[in-house]
Amino acid sequence: DLSNISVASIKNAKVITSEQGFNKDITNPVLSKQTQLKIPDVCRYKNIPCSNWLDVFTHLGMRF
């Protein structure tokens, strides 16, 4: 997953993940120790666009 974030930052791409973030400030050392970091949290910190698979399928015109 970290490799996806790295490639997205280099290629100006969007990260697609099934994880949901905690909306925590990952720069706060106290909060970072209390919860595991999730991909959306890291993407938000690095200003990398991030979506989930439902967004992708909706964009492709699939209906559920």
Rank of each mutant, 00 (worst) to 15 (best):
62 M>R: 07
11 K>T: 14
55 D>C: 09
54 L>N: 13
28 N>I: 02
21 G>W: 05
61 G>Y: 07
20 Q>G: 02
29 P>K: 01
3 S>H: 00
19 E>R: 00
26 I>S: 04
5 I>V: 08
21 G>V: 00
59 H>M: 14
63 R>M: 13
19 E>K: 05
6 S>A: 15
24 K>S: 12
27 T>P: 02
14 K>C: 11
42 V>G: 00
2 L>R: 10
1 D>E: 01
41 D>F: 06
20 Q>E: 07
11 K>E: 10
49 P>Q: 13
44 R>I: 08
19 E>L: 04
1 D>W: 05
31 L>P: 11
4 N>E: 05
28 N>D: 11
14 K>W: 08
39 I>G: 00
55 D>G: 04
7 V>N: 03
37 L>M: 14
57 F>E: 00
36 Q>L: 13
8 A>Q: 08
52 N>L: 05
20 Q>F: 03
41 D>Q: 05
48 I>M: 03
38 K>G: 03
44 R>C: 08
18 S>Q: 09
30 V>I: 15
32 S>N: 14
56 V>S: 01
41 D>T: 14
56 V>T: 07
5 I>L: 02
42 V>H: 03
16 I>W: 03
44 R>A: 14
31 L>V: 15
28 N>K: 02
7 V>A: 14
64 F>V: 12
43 C>N: 03
60 L>R: 11
32 S>T: 14
43 C>S: 04
45 Y>Q: 07
6 S>T: 13
64 F>L: 12
49 P>L: 08
14 K>H: 09
40 P>V: 02
9 S>Q: 12
41 D>N: 11
57 F>C: 08
22 F>D: 06
30 V>D: 05
54 L>P: 05
18 S>Y: 11
44 R>V: 11
54 L>Q: 07
34 Q>W: 05
45 Y>T: 02
64 F>R: 03
13 A>M: 11
2 L>H: 01
11 K>S: 12
42 V>I: 13
22 F>C: 09
17 T>V: 09
24 K>F: 08
18 S>H: 10
63 R>E: 14
40 P>I: 04
16 I>C: 06
46 K>F: 15
8 A>D: 06
25 D>M: 04
43 C>L: 00
9 S>E: 10
31 L>Q: 15
35 T>I: 13
13 A>V: 06
63 R>P: 13
48 I>K: 04
41 D>M: 01
42 V>D: 01
36 Q>F: 14
7 V>M: 11
